[in-house]
C-alpha cells in the first residue's frame, strides 16, 4: 500500500446541525465496525480522503509496473521471466481493482488518471528509484511488497467496503510477490560472490527508501487522527514501520546480508529492532519530484497514454457504430 504521500490536511468547514446528526450516526456505524457502502451517506471529508487514498494507491500500482517491467525482457531464466511478467501483470490487476473501488466514490477512472498524468496526484515515492541490476527485482519483491503487505493487511478491515474487499484480494497476491522476491535474494546470496555482491548492493539502495514507504514520522503526520477515527487507518506510520523492520531484519540476516544502518540493533528489553534516523530531506525531495526517476516515470506514463489515445478512440468509435447498427436493425425489424 502506497499512501504515504497522503499528507494534506482536510479543510474543515462549518457543519449544519442536521449534518452533525448524520455524522454522529455515521461515526456510530464505523465504531460498530459496520462497512460503509457506496450508496450510504458519508461525510464529504471521508469521501475525499478515500478517493485520494485509493486513487493514489491505484496510481502506485500502475507506476510500480515500470521499474520492475524494466527487467522483464532481461530476466535470467524462463521461469524467472514468466514469474516477473506475471507479477507485473498482477500489479496492473491491482490498479484495475483499485480504480474500480475509487470509482464508487463518484469520480471516473479517466479523471483519476488525468490527476496522475497532470502531476496533481501522487504515487508512492519508492517507484522513483531505479532498478539497476537483477537483484533489484528480488529486493523489490522482498522489501517493497513486504512493506506494502504491512500497510495493506490492516486495510482489509478498512471501514469502506469496496476498498476493504479490494485489499483482501490484493493482499494474497502481494504476499506471494514477497516470497518470490525473497527467494530471488536467497538464490543470489547462495550463488557466486558476484551474485551475492549484487544482492548486497540492492539491499543498500532499497532499504531506506522502503522504510520511507510508511510515510512521515507520527510526530510530523497531519492526517492520521481523523483517518484513524474513520477506521481508514488502523495503525500509525511509525507502528507499521517498526513492524516491518522487526519482520525484515531477521530475514536479511538469514541471507547473510548487512543492513546499511550502523545504528540497527536489537533491544532485548522491548523486543524490537531499533534503527537509525531516516533521511527526511531525501524523502521530501523524492515526494516533491526530485527523485532519481520521477520525471522518467511520468514521461513513460504520459507517453503510453498519449500513444494509446488513437486506440481508445477507435474502440469507442467502433462500439458506437455497432450500437447504431443494432438500433437500425431493430427499427427495420
Amino acid at each position: 500500500m502506497y499512501t504515504q504521500a497522503l499528507n494534506t490536511k482536510e479543510t474543515l468547514r462549518p457543519v449544519a446541525p442536521e449534518d452533525m446528526e448524520r455524522e454522529a450516526r455515521f461515526q456510530a456505524r464505523i465504531d460498530a465496525e459496520e462497512k460503509i457502502e457506496p450508496n450510504d451517506w458519508m461525510p464529504e471529508g471521508y469521501r475525499r480522503t478515500l478517493a485520494r487514498q485509493i486513487s493514489q494507491h491505484a496510481h502506485s500500482e500502475i507506476v510500480g509496473m515500470l521499474p520492475e517491467g524494466n527487467w522483464i525482457t532481461r530476466a535470467p531464466t524462463l521461469r524467472r521471466k514468466a514469474a516477473l511478467l506475471a507479477k507485473v501483470q498482477d500489479e496492473g490487476g491491482h490498479g484495475l481493482y483499485l480504480y474500480a473501488a475509487a470509482e464508487t466514490l463518484g469520480i471516473s477512472r479517466e479523471e483519476y488518471v488525468e490527476q496522475l498524468l497532470s502531476g496533481r496526484a501522487k504515487y508512492s515515492s519508492i517507484f522513483n528509484y531505479p532498478t539497476l541490476t537483477w537483484a533489484d527485482i528480488g529486493a523489490i519483491g522482498w522489501l517493497v511488497d513486504g512493506a506494502a503487505i504491512m500497510n495493506q493487511i490492516p486495510l482489509c478491515r478498512c471501514s469502506y467496503g469496496p476498498y476493504a474487499r479490494a485489499m483482501i484480494r490484493i493482499c494474497k497476491e502481494e504476499s506471494f510477490h514477497q516470497r518470490q522476491g525473497y527467494e530471488i535474494m536467497l538464490t543470489l546470496c547462495r550463488g557466486t560472490p558476484e551474485q551475492k555482491a549484487m544482492a548486497q548492493d540492492a539491499l543498500n539502495r532499497w532499504w531506506w527508501p522502503s522504510l520511507m514507504m510508511f510515510g512521515p514520522s507520527d510526530k510530523d503526520s497531519q492526517h492520521s487522527d481523523q483517518s484513524m477515527r474513520w477506521k481508514i487507518k488502523r495503525f500509525s506510520n511509525d507502528e507499521l514501520r517498526q513492524k516491518f523492520v522487526d519482520a525484515t531484519v531477521p530475514q536479511g540476516l538469514y541471507l547473510g546480508l548487512t543492513f546499511p544502518d550502523p545504528d540497527l540493533k536489537f533491544n532485548e528489553a522491548t523486543g524490537h529492532w531499533e534503527f537509525g534516523e531516516i533521511d527526511w530531506s531525501e524523502f521530501k525531495n523524492v515526494i516533491a519530484g526530485n527523485g532519481p526517476c520521477n520525471k522518467q516515470r511520468m514521461k513513460q506514463r504520459r507517453k503510453a497514454h498519449e500513444e494509446g489515445a488513437w486506440v481508445r478512440e477507435a474502440a469507442l468509435a467502433y462500439a458506437q457504430k455497432r450500437k447504431a447498427r443494432r438500433e437500425q436493425r431493430a427499427q427495420a425489424a
Partner: peptide, 8 residues
C-alpha cells in the same frame, strides 16, 4: 507490459 494503450 506497462506501456499498453489501456490497463486492460
Amino acid at each position: 507490459c506497462g506501456h499498453a494503450p489501456m490497463l486492460e
